[in-house]
Simulated scan of single mutants.
Amino acid sequence: MADKCDLCLLGLIILSSLLTGISGVDDHVFISSGENVRLSCNNALSDCKSKTTWHYSNRFRHTEAVELITLGIKKKDTERHERLSLESDCSLNIKNGTEEDYGFYTCRQYVNDRQQGSDARVSLHVLHVSVSPSPSSSSSSSSQTEISPGRSLTLSCQLYSDIGFSCDQWVSSEGFELLWVNQAGVDLKTDSRYQILSSSDQDHCIITLTTTLLNEDNNREWRCQLTHRNQLKTSVRYTVKYSGEKTLFSDRFVETFTHWLYSF
């Protein structure tokens, strides 16, 4: 019994340390892929632009922090260079955020080569949807895919977060949840035609939707959303669009039939 109590105590200590790490972050920002995002520097000084350095870190992608902006100047050797900008209040703007952008961002202020104040840390979480089979369009980031009725479709919604522990722990301790809903906002778990499965990987939470497409699914929208204690944080919409050939045939049929009808 003593051994079991020791293990329970150890588990509580570990979980407590993880939650302490989360609470040490000044701000959590949630976006869907493709959105622009603004990360605030809460410790900004007056006339701060030339005094600001932004660092990026991700325990799953880098061993050390990467400098994105040094004393107001963008680093040209970073993959985000073209998408970054520094505002007059020293907030960091990221254009067209992707799942590669998730992680921790740290704002530091320097005067005469000495850091002023404490770090301002922002945790960026990115929601992204991928589809199987892959879209036939040239852009893999499109929110539409040209497929046909009768085929199976799987949508994988992934929340990329550098939280340091599993989604199950995050949900139970912080109250986050991933859902697939229809256009009316109804949870698709309540509809038997959809298979909804949840899982987690090292650095992201996953919820998949699988269904066999029906004729009436053309232009139907499904939405993956992230909620925190029932409050919506961000969402990704996905619209099904059937192949142009089938749609064109249907449109011509309706047009011909209408013309024939009105000829009487």
Rank of each mutant, 00 (worst) to 15 (best):
A2Y: 14
D6N: 13
L7S: 15
C8E: 14
L9C: 13
L12Y: 12
I13G: 09
I14N: 09
L15T: 02
G21W: 04
D26N: 06
F30L: 12
S33T: 00
G34K: 03
G34V: 05
E35V: 05
E35D: 02
C48W: 07
S57Y: 14
R59L: 13
F60Q: 10
R61I: 08
T63V: 09
I69T: 10
T70Y: 11
I73P: 00
K75I: 07
K76S: 05
T78W: 01
E79V: 14
L84W: 04
E87I: 03
C90S: 12
C90G: 06
N96M: 11
E100I: 07
G103C: 15
Q109T: 08
Q109A: 15
S118N: 11
V122Q: 02
V122N: 01
S123Q: 08
H125A: 04
S130V: 08
S134G: 05
S136N: 07
S140D: 10
S140C: 12
S142C: 06
S142M: 07
S143Y: 04
Q144H: 02
E146L: 09
S148F: 10
S148C: 03
G150A: 11
S152R: 11
L153H: 00
L155M: 04
S156R: 11
I163E: 01
F165M: 00
S166A: 15
Q169W: 10
Q169V: 05
W170Q: 01
E174A: 12
F176L: 14
L178E: 02
W180T: 01
Q183Y: 05
G185V: 04
Y194K: 02
S198W: 02
I207Q: 00
T208Q: 06
L209F: 01
T212V: 14
E216Q: 06
D217G: 01
N218G: 03
R220D: 04
R220G: 09
W222I: 04
Q225F: 01
Q225L: 13
L226H: 03
S235H: 06
V236M: 13
V236S: 11
Y238M: 02
Y242L: 13
Y242D: 09
G244D: 15
R252P: 05
R252V: 11
F253Q: 08
E255Y: 06
S263M: 13
